[in-house]
């Protein structure tokens, strides 16, 4: 095994078949198309991109909820394609999932105690005492104290922020090594977002957790992750350490995303933003070459619209899939 690499994603593709009249195939939605990256133990990685670029599909494929069309996911040195049934179950138990919509994530008819006990029961934690201990620890970790106040509550009795904390508590209760959290705060108000993100950050540090933090909000990445990966049209267009990335954004799409993000600053009202028009590509019929080329002002005729760019190294650990860096 390589030094403390927890997760290795190699040339991963997840396609969805599109059918007409229920059976005639009209092609594939290439939601995740040849994606490769590594995640170290204890590392927080932001996955950023606009809606429809494949973030959720990537997350769900890593979690074993979608079967990849091709490619490989190596967890703790072993390919999940080679896992036995028992190993798949153990694998899933080692990953926590915080899904996109907290309101849909919690069963409305279960109280908090039941919600947190479920994954324990499913994974064979039989002793009542052990269950109580783990539930108490999970709630305490998420600052939901006194614990007794929350145990009998049903989801509708909790605020949006509290519900999301229950979702996170459930994701970490089995002591996973990796938590995948898909837009964990996008449905919440500004004043509570930070509280949730800071709690996740504390968990990450305290338990040496690896975190895949999916977001469309670039302004949060510097506070909550070490590394960033930008997706566009099913592909990774740029990845690198957060600070280096912010100092030296290289892919034209990434540059546009940064330009489009507004900090609260009265000077903003005086200038126009230089952002491309147009729309993200169809993943059923993506454009040839670089998927961003139809919107890109640096497009090199005959190259960008023909050949798919490979990853070019910008600096150590920082790469961009763009012909400008050939």
């Amino acid at each position: 095994m390589q030094n403390n690499v927890l997760l290795e994603v190699n040339n991963l593709k997840t396609y969805f078949e599109m059918k007409k009249w229920g059976f005639v195939s009209i092609g594939h939605v290439r939601a995740v198309d040849n994606v490769s990256f590594n995640l170290k133990q204890g590392e927080a990685l932001s996955v950023v991109g606009e809606s429809g670029c494949g973030k959720t599909t990537l997350a769900r494929t890593i979690l074993g909820l979608y079967r990849p069309t091709s490619g490989d996911i190596v967890y703790d040195g072993k390919s999940i394609n080679e896992f036995s049934k028992g190993e798949i179950k153990a694998y899933r138990a080692q990953l926590g999932y915080v899904q996109q919509d907290p309101y849909g994530a919690l069963p409305p008819f279960m109280d908090v105690r039941r919600i947190l006990a479920e994954p324990l029961i499913i994974n064979g934690v039989k002793s009542r005492q052990e269950q109580e201990k783990l539930i108490e620890r999970a709630l305490t970790d998420l600052k939901m104290t006194p614990v007794e106040d929350f145990l009998p509550k049903f989801p509708h009795m909790l605020s949006g922020g509290q519900q999301q904390r229950i979702v996170i508590a459930r994701a970490k209760i089995l002591g996973p090594k990796l938590i995948v959290s898909d837009e964990p705060v996008s449905m919440l108000d500004a004043s509570v977002r930070i509280e949730i993100l800071q709690l996740m950050r504390q968990l990450q540090e305290e338990y040496d957790l690896a975190v895949i933090y999916i977001t469309h909000d670039l302004s949060t990445v510097r506070y909550f992750s070490e590394r960033i990966l930008v997706m566009y049209g099913g592909k990774i267009v740029e990845q690198g350490p957060v600070q280096e990335f912010l100092d030296n954004p290289s892919h034209p799409y990434t540059q546009a995303l940064l330009e489009a993000t507004s900090d609260p600053d009265p000077k903003n009202a005086e200038t126009f933003k230089k952002v491309p028009g147009g729309e993200p590509p169809s993943l059923l019929n993506p454009p040839p070459g670089c998927r961003f080329h139809p919107r890109c002002s640096y497009m090199i005729e005959g190259l960008c619209n023909r050949e798919e760019p490979p990853d070019f190294i910008i600096k150590e650990n920082h790469s961009a899939a763009c012909w400008l860096y050939r």
Partner: peptide
Amino acid sequence: LMASVPTLREDKELDF
């Protein structure tokens, strides 16, 4: 509220 807004261009102390 302003302190709870994360910023892209500046590293600030966030609050909630």
